[in-house]
């Protein structure tokens, strides 16, 4: 169903962090941006769609005070807003936001200091405190449809999922228990939460009610990344067991049922996969990277 394409080399190898690959397609310029975290550096590659041009950029974690220890980056992710695209980088020191091409830092929010966050046209609106354990992943409704009340889900180390309605003020709609197993990656698609766990399980919940629709014994080791292609309902899962799997999720609104079927396996030999993302909204292509790997491997539908 998929075949391997030419890999993209990155400047540093990927660190073992959940969801350690993000992809942003910029249609007007026919470019795709990739980001992978290596310790205290974000590696960015901008690739032209014809596959002829690659340009690299490295972003360092901000260190306001060199007397403290080095600041490892935990996550780098693109945030697509109606008005602008941002690259958000979180580290132990704080939150940095860049223009999506990584060119200019537009916001800096230091944690553990009284310093007020600074940024252009970005202000802190609210701090949500519902999780008792470390937050592992955040996902917004990816179908683009405004009709779903629940449009944000957050996951933590205890497996708890918080379902939110975002807006001027965020509203907690539901809390789904995770039985003390880390939920390392989460997605929200057409009102369904797709969650991947440390036990290799994938669960599909109805966001608003927390009703469990499906459970899949998907991987033999910790899941590190999930992604959904919103137009097709294809689901990507990747784990430390070196497998990337493609699934399809289907919904029947009349019966309020959700189904999931298995489509495809890819094994990246001797690689604990830490990031996997579709490169487009149909799931026509996806990209993968793993711990200690200095490349992004791409797969395209045949």
């Amino acid at each position: 169903m998929y075949h391997k394409e030419r890999s993209i080399q990155i400047k540093n190898s990927a660190s073992a962090l959940y969801n350690n690959l993000d992809v942003l397609r910029i249609a007007p310029t026919r470019l795709t941006y990739f980001t992978v975290v290596h310790a205290n550096v974000v590696n960015m590659v901008s690739a032209s769609w014809d596959g002829l041009n690659y340009s690299h950029r490295q972003l360092q974690s901000k260190e306001p005070n060199v007397a403290t220890s080095t600041s490892l980056i935990m996550q780098a992710a693109f945030c697509v807003l109606p008005s602008r695209d941002l690259l958000v980088v979180t580290s132990q020191k704080g939150i940095q936001m860049y223009e999506s091409d990584g060119s200019i830092m537009v916001y800096w929010h230091a944690l553990d200091t009284p310093e007020t966050p600074t940024g252009s046209n970005i202000t802190l609106s609210e701090v949500l405190e519902e999780h008792k354990e470390s937050i592992t992943d955040i996902a917004s409704e990816c179908s683009g449809c405004q009709s779903y009340i629940a449009n944000l889900v957050t996951a933590d180390d205890g497996g708890t999922l918080c379902v939110w309605k975002s807006g001027e003020e965020f509203q907690l709609l539901n809390k789904i228990s995770g039985f003390d197993v880390t939920c390392s990656s989460v997605k929200l698609w057409k009102g369904t939460v797709v969650a991947g766990y440390g036990t290799g399980l994938i669960r599909l919940y109805e966001a608003i009610t927390g009703i469990l629709h499906a459970e899949v014994n998907a991987h033999a080791r910790w899941i590190y990344s999930l992604d959904i292609a919103p137009f097709s309902g294809l689901l990507l899962s990747a784990a430390e067991d070196s497998f990337v799997r493609v699934w399809n999720v289907t919904m029947t609104p009349e019966t309020n049922s959700v189904e999931i079927g298995h489509l495809h396996n890819e094994c990246v030999t001797d690689t604990q996969i830490c990031g996997a993302k579709f490169c487009d909204s149909d799931g026509y292509a996806f990209a993968v990277t793993g711990y200690d790997l200095s490349e992004i491997i791409r797969y395209v539908q045949t």
Partner: peptide
Amino acid sequence: GRFVLPTCGPVPHGTQVPGLIRIFSC
């Protein structure tokens, strides 16, 4: 120089052997 990661043998304690999809009613 990379270590070999087996795709066989016992799964970790607390993990099920991958290969099963279960669908539930409301």
